[in-house]
Design a protein around this nucleic acid. Structure first.
Lengths: 130, 130
DNA sequence: GCTATCTGGTTTCCATCAGAAACCTGTCAG
DNA sequence: CTGACAGGTTTCTGATGGAAACCAGATAGC
């Protein structure tokens, strides 16, 4: 691998608000991105199927989010001239690699949700008792 | 008020808006959570040091975010009666495990930021040329 | 011809939320 | 008594999210 160590500016620094990795982190650490990428990772999927599968997302936000995911080169949008028109969203290789990175997160949430709930109850009862 | 998990809800399903894992995912897939946990993971840190290290966060949002991280049992808040008062934030074991899960994300962002930027340029030039 | 339905959106409106800046509390230095 | 430092809270305002309505194109039913 040709790892080129760059001078100051080119060193990724997520803690610098102007660094591209920070902007990228803001993008992918988004409420819907994780869910959307997880669904599309399973198989290419149409707009309304996506909407039904990810409960609670509005059409506007789904449309906006897909548009920026497409812009970021994470998903592809393909329209087929069927009747009615069919639009299929699929992951790019880049999107696949991100989905793989994101997967442990969903697993962590499922594994530790009990502990979080207990911590919240504990915190709330102390705050209430105060 | 106690949240009683109904039988149907015992299977974690992040795609169900009412499932605890979904709520949890909404929480941890937050813009600041990733950065904050990453900094605190290195060593316990004071409020203003945290603010300086994570550029661009306002006091209000930092205070709010730390409060909910504390409620979730991810960080601890310890005030020392020094002059002026010192408040130190540290990770709990649960927070450490989440930080470990989140670390690959920051790495992914650093690794692939070039590809994302190229995809955006490509997309924008096509959209502009249209 | 008129209406309904399907898809994949866009538009409109409103409530919430994030950020900027000011302010507050307490103590010490000059 | 003015300023500085730490750790916040309050206030105001502009951006953002969700709900619901609307739109476009084509086909199916009556």
């Amino acid at each position: 691998m040709n790892l080129v160590i760059a001078p100051a500016d080119l060193t990724p620094d997520p803690f610098n608000p102007r660094c591209p990795t920070r902007l990228l982190l803001d993008r992918i650490a988004d409420k819907w991105t994780v869910l959307l990428l997880t669904v599309i990772a399973r198989e290419p999927v149409r707009f309304n199927a996506l909407r039904r599968e990810v409960g609670g997302i509005s059409q506007k936000v789904l449309s906006q989010t897909l548009k920026s995911l497409e812009r970021d080169g994470l998903v592809t949008r393909t329209a087929y001239p069927t009747v009615p028109v069919t639009v299929e969203y699929a992951l790019t290789p880049l999107g696949i690699s991100l989905a793989a990175t994101l997967a442990p997160l969903a697993l962590w949430a499922a594994t530790h949700m009990g502990e979080i709930g207990a911590a919240q109850d504990h915190f709330d009862s102390r705050a209430g008792a105060h």
